[in-house]
Simulated scan of single mutants.
Amino acid sequence: MALFDVFNPFQGITPRFTEEKINEIIAWFDVHSKPLLVINDGDPLHVITIEKLIDFLKLKKFHRRMFHYPSYAEIMNEAEKLKAGVTRMLTKEQFIYILDKWIVKANLKHELLLAFKIFDTEKRKFLEIDELSFIVTNYGDMFNKAETLELLRDANVQGDGNIFYENFVESLFNVAPELNDITVDFLYENPDEDPSVPPDPVIEIETSPKEKQFTQPLAPVGSININIIE
């Protein structure tokens, strides 16, 4: 297995961002980056600081339903993995990579449970067979009517026509784990309408003296010598 290259983090990995989104990120980076980092006496690399990354996140360019806005601790944790915890600087590739880590994909199990809760207006935690059948056959096109009736027949163990949908979903995915691989859309387009999405987070910024951001040459990372241009 190839070693993780902090300066080429997408090696063997396909970004989850669309090409359009990547171009938007690159355009922002090109405007705000500066040639401050030198690797092995090569030409200076354009980089942004961690503080600039936080400024970018504050712009809320990504839909909150599809992107996890990280805390300062989460940001620094990812920076450490890229050996940028000391330099507090990110190259263009690292900038895209660290943002790509926080993309949120719709999960079929989660979205199904949300759909059931919409129909469960009385918050009884169970639905009648007809209601549940409608959701399963119409959301995500998972099963046809015959397949759904067979599933519901097994699920309705009490024979009263009511099905506790949380237990039903768990048993469904235990029997057919391949359902986890199905790609679906988010049930709520507006994250503020989704009861499972927390409100906008407050990104706490750790204040540090400027001299800690742009200091003397750093110790080598592996066999790579990194220098910060003052």
Rank of each mutant, 00 (worst) to 15 (best):
V86I: 15
M66S: 14
I26W: 01
F29Q: 02
I75W: 06
K60M: 09
R16N: 09
E74V: 03
L57E: 06
K21Y: 09
F67Y: 15
F56L: 05
N23G: 07
L45A: 05
A73C: 05
V31E: 13
D41M: 10
H63F: 08
Y69M: 10
V31K: 12
I48F: 01
M89F: 11
F62P: 07
L82K: 00
G85H: 15
K52L: 06
V86D: 14
P15S: 07
F17T: 02
T87H: 10
W28Q: 06
H68D: 10
F67G: 04
L82R: 02
I39P: 10
E80Q: 11
H63T: 10
R88Y: 12
I75P: 00
K58P: 00
S33Y: 00
E78Y: 11
F29S: 02
V47Y: 01
D41R: 14
S71P: 07
I39W: 10
V31N: 05
P15M: 04
N23M: 12
N40M: 08
E24R: 11
G85Y: 10
I25L: 13
P35H: 07
P35A: 06
T91K: 03
L45C: 07
M76A: 01
Y72M: 07
I54W: 05
A79C: 15
G85P: 03
K83H: 12
K52R: 05
R64N: 10
I25K: 03
T91Y: 01
L82N: 01
F56E: 00
V31Q: 09
F67R: 12
L82F: 04
R64K: 14
H68W: 15
D41F: 08
E24L: 12
A79G: 02
I54V: 13
K83D: 14
T18C: 03
K34R: 14
K83M: 13
E24C: 10
R64L: 11
I22C: 03
K21W: 09
L36M: 14
E51N: 03
D41A: 12
A84E: 04
F67N: 11
D55V: 02
E19I: 07
H63Y: 09
E19V: 06
M66H: 12
I48C: 01
K58E: 14
K34P: 00
L37N: 07
P44S: 08
T18W: 08
K21Q: 15
